[in-house]
Design a protein around this nucleic acid. Structure first.
Lengths: 189, 189
DNA sequence: GACGATACGGAAGCTCGATTCCGTTTGTCA
DNA sequence: TGACAAACGGAATCGAGCTTCCGTATCGTC
């Protein structure tokens, strides 16, 4: 996933620094502008030339994938938090609410989710088993406690989260918790 | 909205025929492939040259807008049906269910909805007051009967429908009614 | 402090799709 | 049926972005 975790000699100091700058700039840019930020914008924000981006990431998509992996890891962490909640239903509520909050601020993530089909069918591109597993655990626990609609599995849940992302997209600030509430109410047994 | 409803001389017979063919081909194409169908595909399906499309519609966007207007009109008709339902809540249910069904089959419409901000803020481009008004009536009636969450107005409802569209997007066939149910349950007082 | 390997910047190239243009064809009207 | 306007087809043009390339600058090592 990350470039060369193994053998070849370590990056030169300036290269390491630039790689980080590119990633940071790209993160901000994609969170704000989604897929239609341009490579040149990112380069400008990072204070490097486009060529430098390509030295570190073979394509725009590879760069996005790297960020996506980060976002998924964050999500997995959030799910892990939610699992710490003693009450199974509270766990679900917490996770959905937080997800809504995150998605309001991250257009790139919303778009990635819109692509779900592609993203999740083919596990080659972005590793997300961790997120997948944690969410499954969260839902299983709620099912076992009989507080979550039994016909909602991970896939259905994911689709609903995509929906939430969409609803949240062009929405007056603050309203996003309303959508989270509607979905939560709909999910409860 | 439609090209020149008024003064200039009527279209020649072949032109009229071609215009219809283009529109029909475009409808099918956009329903299936959304915004990324290409003008040339449409031309091919319609059995005309690209030039002919441009004789009738100044840009690709104009063509999409024309179809969008049709889709909105359909939606308004569905909302009108729903208003005929004697029970206010049944009306909402009917409308949401049917909308879900329609959206599963129409990628173009889903994408248009994804753009909601643009589409509805600026009423210059596509006329949709009719849909807007009918849905407002539907919701008002349900509010008055006390069966619909009072904090859900047209805008919130629209956002939720967008969400539904998204959820429905990469979904196993048949599952879309599940999402409609979840949202409906969440909407009910 | 000199040399080779690495990395950099950003102009040029390439691809893909929308849109334009114009020589040719077809419909309409007398 | 002939003349003219209207419409057609589709090759050529144009623009937008991603990606490549290469001359120059920097790093790390001896």
């Amino acid at each position: 996933m990350t470039t060369a975790p193994s053998s070849p000699r370590p990056l030169r100091a300036d290269a390491r620094r630039n790689r980080r700058r590119v990633l940071d700039a790209a993160r901000v840019a994609f969170e704000e502008g989604g897929n239609d930020v341009q490579m040149e914008d990112i380069a400008k924000r990072a204070g490097v030339g486009v060529g430098t981006i390509y030295r570190h990431f073979p394509t725009k998509q590879a760069l996005i994938d790297e960020l996506t992996a980060e976002w998924m890891a964050d999500g997995a962490a959030k799910a892990a938090d939610a699992l710490k909640e003693p009450d199974p239903w509270d766990g679900v509520v917490l996770f959905v609410r937080r997800s809504a909050e995150i998605m309001v601020r991250n257009r790139g993530l919303r778009e990635v989710f819109g692509d779900v089909g592609q993203l999740f069918e083919d596990d080659a591109r972005v590793q997300n088993h961790d997120l997948q597993d944690k969410v499954t655990a969260l839902l299983d626990r709620a099912h076992a406690a009989g507080v979550l609609r039994p016909d909602v599995g991970v896939n259905e849940f994911r689709a609903l989260m995509c929906g939430l992302a969409m609803a949240v997209t062009n929405t007056p600030p603050g309203a996003h918790q309303l959508y989270a509430d509607v979905i939560l109410k709909g999910l409860k047994t």
